[in-house]
Design a protein around this nucleic acid. Structure first.
Lengths: 155, 155
DNA sequence: TCGAATAGTTTCACTATTGAACTATATAGC
DNA sequence: GCTATATAGTTCAATAGTGAAACTATTCGA
């Protein structure tokens, strides 16, 4: 691919991803339970899917500083949607765990979200959908790898 | 596609898009000129690409309220990166326009961004990249249409 | 054992966001 | 023309998320 084509492709990507992100966030926010913000729902879903997790891990996954996570976790904890569980051995670390109410809320939200996304899936054939998601996952993997590489260089 | 498959596909999409968005935003923020935030750079790019634009239009495109746009525009204006140009005929509307400095900054940023994204593009064949972007654009278009449809129902 | 690393919190300043109240202007119906 | 109403944009107060720096508590390593 020549530079010209490359540049156009990237422009198209930036445009499309901006549109998709903004519109989908807006639609998604409408489905959110009153108790949750979008970021809080992401945190809660991550805890639900990944079991015991620390603030540091969340910070890595969310690509933000630990103080951001403290803020989010404190709000969720105030609302009794997650618990802080201290590690027995290493008393510096505290694990985070969704409460049953927290879990209930994310499952409710997820099912609404699934319903929403199904509508848009209908614009694509099965092959298109699977092809798309495969490439998207490869992009995600490449981005995760890049991070790991740059960390091992530092360390 | 049966419900089970559908549900898994959507989970995979949510996971991949979360990862891509978070990681790419983080990498992108590192490339940002000191004068700009990410959202400000998006606004400025939109103005650069779309010529004279109003706050209302920006609010639509960004899927936020007009008061958010006022805030962003005021900050950009304080930094002399955009100008407010009053409409001669309808004195309620003011057009927004990137200053030459504003334009310079976004172009600089865009070229850094292009460099970054090129690295990740190398993980894909040309056909894969074009196929991906085509589907992504169709998704974006579907989301825009959905909005327009729901607006015409209201109006 | 002492100094360095690590986990997490606090605080501060800032950006983005919403929603409601508000100003100013334009427009449509009578 | 006059008056309702709609529209464009701003202001204000409240809230969430964020980074950076300072801080506490704990663990680890030389």
């Amino acid at each position: 691919m020549d530079t010209e084509q490359l540049s156009k492709l990237i422009d198209r990507y930036l445009e499309a991803s901006f549109t998709v992100n903004r519109r989908l966030s807006a639609l998604t926010r409408d489905l959110l339970p009153d108790e949750l913000t979008l970021d809080q729902s992401f945190a809660l879903r991550y805890l639900r899917e990944n079991g015991c997790t620390t603030s540091s891990e969340l910070a890595e996954v969310f690509c933000v500083g630990k103080s951001s996570i403290t803020a989010i976790v404190t709000r969720l904890s105030d609302k009794k949607l997650i618990e802080r569980v201290p590690d027995e051995k290493d008393r510096r670390v505290t694990y985070l765990k969704a409460t049953s109410e927290g879990e209930r809320l994310t499952r409710q939200f997820d099912s609404r979200l699934e319903e929403l996304l199904c509508q848009y899936l209908s614009h694509f054939t099965d092959d298109e959908a699977f092809g798309f998601i495969e490439l998207y996952e490869r992009l995600a993997a490449a981005l995760v790898q890049a991070r790991e590489r740059s960390e091992s260089e530092e360390g």
